[in-house]
């Protein structure tokens, strides 16, 4: 079994109309043994940006601390908050620094990007474990249930979903993909981000 599957866990992000959503499961396991059902893999970066870190659990914590440090340093030096696009490059270069001894994490980002006109545009991105960026216009997935997430998301997602509809779509996509994956599940958490607020909801899932 690969080290990427050691602790289990999955993350998905989707684009909607003037909103984005990011969701993950809550399981932490060691191979087939489940340790806890409240292991969060999605962390806030700014008020309008979240990053999900599925993969090896030790690197989830290490990278979370690493990103927090680097974003804080950026904020102090630049005297402004980091934009999603810039943060994606930061994630990419942080991972590529460890090209030949990588962190076993495939980050997923979702946020609202400032536009030159002064508005906000939805932004999602994902990278592989060595930082190869993937900017998608619809949805991105990562983790042990990624194949299943691709399948369900391909069937359920449609363009220009409103915040509440996007919440329903991402929740159903995640929950139904998790039920087919032995290494993900045990509850889920969903964040829906709009330009002026974030709605966070915990979902109950199958506990087997």
């Amino acid at each position: 079994m690969s080290i990427m599957q050691h602790n289990g866990g999955s993350v998905i992000a989707m684009v909607g109309k003037d909103c984005v959503a990011i969701a993950s499961d809550l399981r932490l396991g060691v191979q087939s043994l489940s340790i806890t059902s409240d292991f969060e893999k999605i962390f806030p970066v700014t008020d309008r940006l979240f990053v999900g870190l599925p993969g090896l659990a030790t690197d989830v914590t290490t990278l979370r601390e690493q990103f927090r440090y680097r974003v804080n340093m950026y904020t102090i030096k630049e005297e402004r908050e980091i934009e999603p696009q810039t943060f994606a490059q930061l994630v990419s270069s942080t991972l590529y620094e460890r090209r030949f001894g990588p962190y076993f994490i495939e980050p997923v980002m979702a946020g609202m990007q400032k536009t030159p006109a002064g508005g906000y545009a939805p932004f999602i991105a994902a990278t592989d474990l060595i930082g190869c960026l993937n900017f998608a216009k619809d949805f991105v997935v990562a983790g042990t249930a990624s194949e299943k997430l691709f399948g369900v998301a391909e069937g359920l997602w449609e363009p220009d979903l409103e915040a509440e509809d996007l919440f329903e779509t991402i929740s159903q996509t995640l929950l139904n993909a998790l039920d087919r994956d032995a290494f993900s599940g045990w509850g889920a958490v969903v964040h829906v981000i709009t330009k002026d607020k974030v709605i966070t909801r915990k979902l109950k899932g199958r506990m087997d």
Binding site: I35, T58, T61
Partner: peptide, 25 residues
């Protein structure tokens, strides 16, 4: 706190390590 040699940290209400964990959990 439950911690393994990878540096995986989890706060838990109860925990176990070793073969005994398969019975006690």
């Amino acid at each position: 706190y439950w911690m393994d040699y990878f540096g995986t940290l989890a706060e838990v209400p109860f925990a176990a390590h070793g073969y005994g964990s398969y019975f006690t959990l």
